[in-house]
Amino acid sequence: MKYTISILVENHPGVLSRVSGLFSRRSFNIDSLAVGVTDDPTVSRITIIVDGNEYTVEQVEKQLNKLIDVIKVKTLAPAETISRELLLVKVAAGAAERGEIMNIVRITDSKICDISRTTMTIEASDTTERLETLLELLRPYGLREVIRTGTIATQRGSDFITVKK
């Protein structure tokens, strides 16, 4: 099963390596990892998707908490999570295919952000599953390049994760 873990860390150099190093040496499998600074410039947020079971997730949480630079760790319940991933995909498209591809873009609520004589570059921000659907629809035209950011996530409703206890 996939679990989404949201981690607040000190925004220091070396922190990401400590966090990601922990996953490999405890043999936890990361599906995706996204990191960025929060509204507080001293704090970064790392969002990790882990493949595992309840035991793995509990261990991941506890081991992460042992890292001095980790301020807070929370595993988000799947039903309570809003998750998004950003995708840039460059697809082979000559004049003949443009119309069909624009149709797919419209249906999937994505965006064309660049175009050349032989390619179109499409931008989409959505859940991992919906991005997979989009890629499947575009695959027949020829995927030239696929770039994904990894998932970021937050909780539904008014709950939020902050540094303060």
Binding site: Y55, E58, Q59, K62, Q63, N65
Partner: peptide, 8 residues
């Protein structure tokens, strides 16, 4: 004293 040892 180390919560990570519990259940490891």
């Amino acid at each position: 004293i180390d919560p990570a040892e519990i259940g490891k």
